[in-house]
Design a protein around this nucleic acid. Structure first.
Length: 467
RNA sequence: GCCCCCAUCGUCCAGCGGCCUAGGACGCCUGCCUUUCACGCAGGUAACACGGGUUCGAAUCCCGUUGGGGGUGCCA
C-alpha cells in the first residue's frame, strides 16, 4: 500500500516555522516511502476562510521546495459530507443535541461540585434541534482508547475522562474533529503526522472514526513541539517565527529546510549539513525524537553561512540583488552610487563573511557611500585609533603619500606599508578604520582603489580631525 | 485542578543492555594561518535530573520523585 500523508494547517495567517517543520516531516516521510502528500486547508471555522491566508501557506511551502500531489483541498468545501456524518451520528445514537452554552454548563458543574467541563447534561433529555443547539458526541463511559503512535509508542486515554465534545456548532457547522475523521478516511490517509499539541484530540477523532464505521484508521505520529528559549511552544504572538520573514531576511530555503530537518531528527552518521536527497534517504519516522526542540537561530545562522559559502559566486551575486538594490531591505547608500561591477569584484570576499544575505550591505556600504560614519565609542575605534599614539602621524603620512600615489591596490598597499615601516607602527588598521569606518571587513586595497581618490583623501582627513 | 507527553553538554543531534573513562555539530575559549575580519586547520570547555529496582552488567528496561511542556473552546 502506498503511503498517503497530509499537511493540514488551519489558515491563521502567515506560516510559522513550526508548521513548516510539520509539513517538512510529512513530506520527508512521503518522499522516503515513495508515497504522496496532500495539502488540506482546515477552515471549518468561518473566521478562517480568507483567501489571503491560503497564499500565506502555499507560498512558503513552495519556496521551501515542499510539494504535494493533491490539493489544496478545503474542508469548508466538503462541509456537506461533514454535516451528513453528524446527522448519521445523531441517527445512530452516538450524538445528541444540547442547548447549553459553555457558561451554563460550567455553572451546572460548579453547582454540582464537579470539576469544570461538560458532564453530559443534555444526554437522553430528548432535546430537539434548534437555533441555539450544538451536537455533542456521546463518549463511552467505560473502556479506553489506545493510540499506537509511531514516535511515542502506546498512549492510552480513558473514555470516561473524555467529555462529550461538540461536533457541530450552533450555526450548523461541523467542527474539525468530524471533518478530520471524514476527510482522512475519504482521502485515504495512511499516516497522520502532526504536532504533539494535537495528541489529546486524537482519541476523539478515533472515537468518531469507529462510530462512523470509517474502516481502517491511519497510523499516528506526533512530532515533538518546536519551542522558544523559554521552552514554550513557538507562538506567533511572542516569537519571531514567520517562515517568509526568515527567507526575506536572507536565509536560503535549502538551509532552512536542512535546519528544520535537524529539529527532532538527526542522521545516524552525524553529518548534519547535506543535500535534501540524502536527508530523504536517511529519514526514518520511527527515529524522530520525543522531546521538544529549541528553534535556535544561532545554529541556523551557521548552517545558512555554510550554504552561502557553497554557492557558485554567480548565484551568490544573483541572490544578493534584493539586498543590494534595496528591494526588501534598506540600503545605507544612495542607489545612484551603486556599481554592480564593483560588487561582483568583491563578491567572493563578501560571500565567505556573511551568514545571511541581509548582512551583505554591511560589508560593502563603504564602497558606495560618500562619507562613512565613525563610532567614537566603538571598540574598533578605540583599539585602532586611540591606543597607539602614532595614529595622527600615520594618517598624516598616508595622506601625503596618497596625494600622488598610483591609484591601484598594490601601490596603495605598498605606500601604507612604507608609512608604517618609517614610523615603526602598524599602519594598516588605522587606514582601514579611516576608510571603511570599522576594523573588520573584506580585503581592503583593491576594493578601495575603486573609490575616487578625493573621497578616500576626505575620509582620511575626516578621521584625522577626530583624533 | 484534571488528562496527556517529555527528560544525554548552554543548544541541536548520536547512543536502542556490554564497543561509553558517553560521540558529532552550534556556541564559547586557546593556538595556527593571516597587513583587518572571516574562512580553514589543531586543541579545549561542557551532559546521562534524582531515588529505587531488574540484570553478571544500565545513559539505555521498570517504578517513583522532581522538573519542563502540551491540552483542558460552539479554534485547530
Amino acid at each position: 500500500m502506498t503511503t498517503r500523508v497530509r499537511f493540514a494547517p488551519a489558515p491563521t495567517g502567515f506560516l510559522h516555522v513550526g508548521s513548516a517543520r510539520s509539513a517538512l516531516f510529512n513530506w520527508l516521510y512521503a518522499e522516503s516511502t515513495g508515497g504522496e502528500m496532500i495539502l488540506r486547508i482546515e477552515d471549518t471555522d468561518a473566521a478562517l476562510r480568507k483567501p489571503e491566508f491560503i497564499d500565506a501557506i502555499v507560498k512558503p511551502l513552495t519556496a521551501l521546495g515542499i510539494t504535494w500531489a493533491e490539493g489544496p483541498y478545503y474542508q469548508s468545501q466538503r462541509k456537506q459530507f461533514h454535516v451528513d456524518a453528524v446527522e448519521q451520528l445523531v441517527q445512530s445514537g452516538h450524538a445528541y443535541y444540547c442547548n447549553l452554552t459553555r457558561d451554563a454548563a460550567d455553572a451546572l458543574a460548579s453547582d454540582a461540585g464537579l470539576p469544570s467541563g461538560y458532564h453530559g447534561w443534555s444526554r437522553d433529555k430528548g432535546i430537539e434541534d434548534g437555533p441555539d443547539c450544538v451536537v455533542r458526541f456521546r463518549t463511552p463511559d467505560e473502556g479506553e482508547i489506545v493510540i499506537h503512535d509511531i514516535i511515542r509508542g502506546e498512549v492510552r486515554f480513558k473514555n470516561a475522562e473524555l467529555e462529550d465534545f461538540v461536533i457541530r456548532r450552533s450555526d450548523g457547522s461541523p467542527t474539525f474533529l468530524v471533518a478530520n475523521a471524514v476527510d482522512d478516511a475519504d482521502m485515504g490517509i495512511t499516516h497522520v503526522i502532526r504536532g504533539e499539541d494535537l495528541l489529546n484530540t486524537t482519541p476523539k477523532v478515533m472515537l468518531l472514526w469507529d462510530a462512523l464505521d470509517l474502516g481502517d484508521k491511519p497510523q499516528y505520529a506526533h512530532l515533538p513541539l518546536l519551542v522558544n528559549a523559554q521552552r514554550k511552544k513557538l507562538s506567533k504572538r511572542r516569537d519571531d517565527v514567520s517562515l517568509m520573514e526568515f527567507l526575506s531576511k536572507g536565509y536560503l530555503p535549502e538551509a532552512m529546510v536542512n535546519h528544520l530537518a535537524l529539529l527532532g531528527w538527526g542522521p545516524p552518521d552525524d553529518k548534519e549539513i547535506r543535500p535534501i536527497g540524502e536527508i530523504i534517504e536517511l529519514f526514518k519516522l520511527e527515529n524522530v525524537n520525543k522531546g521538544s526542540a529549541f528553534f535556535d537561530v544561532t545554529k541556523l545562522d551557521h548552517i545558512n553561512g555554510e550554504y552561502i559559502r557553497a554557492l557558485p559566486v554567480e548565484r551568490f551575486i544573483e541572490l544578493a540583488e534584493p539586498f543590494v538594490y534595496g528591494v526588501d531591505t534598506d540600503i545605507p547608500w544612495d542607489a545612484a552610487n551603486y556599481d554592480p561591477e564593483v560588487f561582483a569584484m568583491v563578491a567572493p570576499d563578501v560571500q565567505q563573511r556573511v551568514s545571511t544575505l541581509a548582512e551583505i550591505p554591511h560589508f560593502i556600504a563603504w564602497l558606495f557611500m560618500d562619507e562613512v560614519p565613525y563610532d567614537l565609542e566603538s571598540k574598533a575605534w578605540n583599539k585602532a585609533m586611540r591606543k597607539g599614539k602614532m595614529t595622527p602621524e600615520i594618517l598624516d603620512g598616508i595622506l601625503s603619500a596618497f596625494g600622488d600615489v598610483e591609484w591601484t591596490g598594490d601601490a596603495m598597499n605598498a605606500a601604507v606599508g612604507e608609512v608604517g615601516d618609517r614610523l615603526e607602527a602598524r599602519s594598516q588598521v588605522p587606514a582601514r578604520v579611516a576608510i571603511t569606518g570599522t576594523n573588520a571587513g573584506i580585503p581592503l586595497w583593491d576594493a578601495a582603489a575603486t573609490i575616487d581618490r578625493e573621497i578616500v583623501l576626505q575620509r582620511l582627513r575626516a578621521a584625522r580631525a577626530l583624533l
